[in-house]
Design a binder for these strands. Structure first.
Lengths: 212, 212, 212, 212
DNA sequence: CGATAAACGAGACGGTACGTCGCGTCTTCTG
DNA sequence: CAGAAGACGCGACGTACCGTCTCGTTTATCG
């Protein structure tokens, strides 16, 4: 998952002979990989393509990632970095308001590319468990976490009962959206998400859906 | 999705020259493909393997399916055939009872092989949209349909409000289970499903979860 | 070499049920085979091509010839039919005159196609001994025989010594021409043949080459 | 003299990037190809066989030779290397003696394998003109050259007339032997060659054959 | 004259070699 | 010595051809 270490990672500070590995190029390589992944999918992306477009040698790729899959796992993790910020979730005063507010930063707002990467990666979710983890950590997980925060806030606010299974409820929207994208390949638009909030989530937490 | 058609599939009845394709062998070939898929996964399965074990020539395979992927798409669709029977869903008198009764015939009860096939196929969901459709039609879709039947039954029974978005609600369990299997790779056991029923679905349709 | 016999070629006259084989089409098929052979060579010619262009089914071909090679052996033998006529060799009064007179009906005059067929068949001379025989019988052999006739006439005429090895000498021109065509792929033109006659054959039979 | 290192490689002098092809393995591969060719003939030899026995990948073979035929063309050319040495032709004092002396190093003495290769290759002579050239260069041509040397020696010696067409005469034995091997498939034994020398070649150069 | 059995055109079939391409490794040369 | 370039061993892919088999149809002979 992390770049392969130098063959001799000694703790005592040796003078570090020879040229140092140029890790500044890692992000560039990962970005190239994500681009190609979004364009062509898992199989369409070849290591030669990545090497060529990143002006790198295949040896360099394999020195840092032991396989194509490892490279992608890292690439997906890399994609995560500019994502939701849990500390900046808007607080509208109501659970529904908070959930609706999050939609802007949801998949739709986030950008087409991330979804295409997701789609391109579905190929591998089962073959490479770590890759599924990476996808989860990069794409779905953060939304689950955000929803959990919003739900906890609602409990604290007294808006919903503390007996609700928040962990489970926080999974509802993200997983249904994922299913829609991955299996049904339908776009996850604002309408669908609002419908989910009003017809599934809000009733499930015991708040009668007002504006039907 | 369907076997490749004859080069000129005219509507006016041509005399059907030449030897006919022996479509009676299709199921056998697809079964072999599913077996190997379950055993070795997508990459491990080769067309030569399928041809050899099915006592067929590669030419025959490629005459019927234009690629390995097309073959698998059909194989998954073929897997669907011995699945849930919508006409035989048990009727326990309550929605919750019906839902719980369906669990036995859920993925867990259905059999190890179908899950392995699913896992072996995840590799392909995005590369081949038709494959995603096939997976949906074979595995998730039937359960969605079954849930829809149960929900409609509950509406007729007066158990839940007619204003509920049944279409959406019928997606909840299957899609959350799929997410759990595909992305989280957690087993979808009875406990999880019952928890979903009691903490998400029943509240969402307005039935207070009784046995907490 | 000959078409495959009926599966039950009994001597006792059975009633001969069913439709008879239509051997009137054999020449047409063989001609098509020769055409394709001349156009594309041995490998380029496929049985499907022959069947298609001859408006025949592959079954019909294989009912008559047990393999592609057998078909070609017959085709070459068929090519032989309009060739040299040993009874009509012109008699000019001298061996040299007779030999030169034969050139007109030699490979050059015979036609481009026969040479191309020869070339197309070289592929097979060693793989299929019968084919080499057929080639010899159809193309080279007749010329050897014709030369032998001319040489014997010269002996009778008292032009050359009876102690000459006529069998061997009759091989000289045909085999050197064959080598030129098959291995060197040089055209066998009148000049070359006359040169052979004057510089090799005539001296070899003891007639000093007059017009040098 | 210090080699000047130009940072900008000239167009005509590319810096030769990447790993170089290991041409030291070419002979090994060609030898393997010849072995299999001698064992199984053209059709029996497969590229996978060659790759496997030479411990090479098919990609390597096709990187160096664009097809099976190209590989064989090179293989035959490679076979040529340990053949007749024109500088070591024995000088017996007479043309007949020289010619007879050469027989030992003729095809018979040369070895079984070369003949088998020739036989295995006949399949290809016309399909691949270059192959015919290679065969000529490797097998027949050297003998033609050797005969030319012997004939020239005889001219210098005053044994035969300078007006003889040496080029043509040097073709006689090799081409008649080739015809015998390729088309008639008769062995080219010492008896036949001596007969040719005494009954065709010697008379043709104006030397009465002494021992009839 | 109708039944029957083989031959026919068309083309699917099992099998097998071909030539291509991708992965992950190894080698060569440059900075 | 790291890195770019690319050859290498391996093995699956999809194509094409051979010789066989199966359709439905046509045609010659027999009852």
């Amino acid at each position: 998952m992390t770049p392969t270490k130098s063959p001799v990672p000694l703790d005592n500070q040796l003078p570090q002979l020879g040229r140092k590995r140029d890790h500044s190029r890692d992000p560039e390589i990962l970005a190239v990989a994500l681009d190609i992944l979004a364009e062509t999918g898992y199989d369409g992306m070849t290591m030669d393509m990545v090497a060529c477009r990143a002006k790198a040698g295949k040896g360099t790729l394999y020195r840092r990632w032991s396989s194509k899959d490892e490279l992608l796992i890292d690439a997906v993790a890399f994609m995560k970095k500019d994502d939701l910020d849990l500390t900046k979730l808007s607080d509208t005063g109501t659970l529904r308001g908070d959930l609706v507010a999050m939609i802007k930063v949801g998949p739709t707002g986030e950008g087409e590319k991330k979804l295409k990467v997701m789609a391109g990666l579905m190929s591998m979710l089962s073959r490479r468990p770590e890759l599924a983890d990476a996808v989860n950590a990069a794409v779905v997980g953060p939304r689950v976490e955000a929803h959990l925060v919003l739900l906890q806030r609602a409990v604290e606010r007294g808006e919903i009962s503390a007996s609700c299974d928040l962990r489970l409820l926080s999974l509802v929207l993200p997983s249904m959206a994922a299913y829609r994208v991955l299996v049904l390949r339908t776009s996850v638009d604002r309408t669908f998400l609002i419908s989910l909030i009003d017809n599934v989530l809000m009733p499930a937490v015991g708040i009668p859906s007002a504006p039907r």
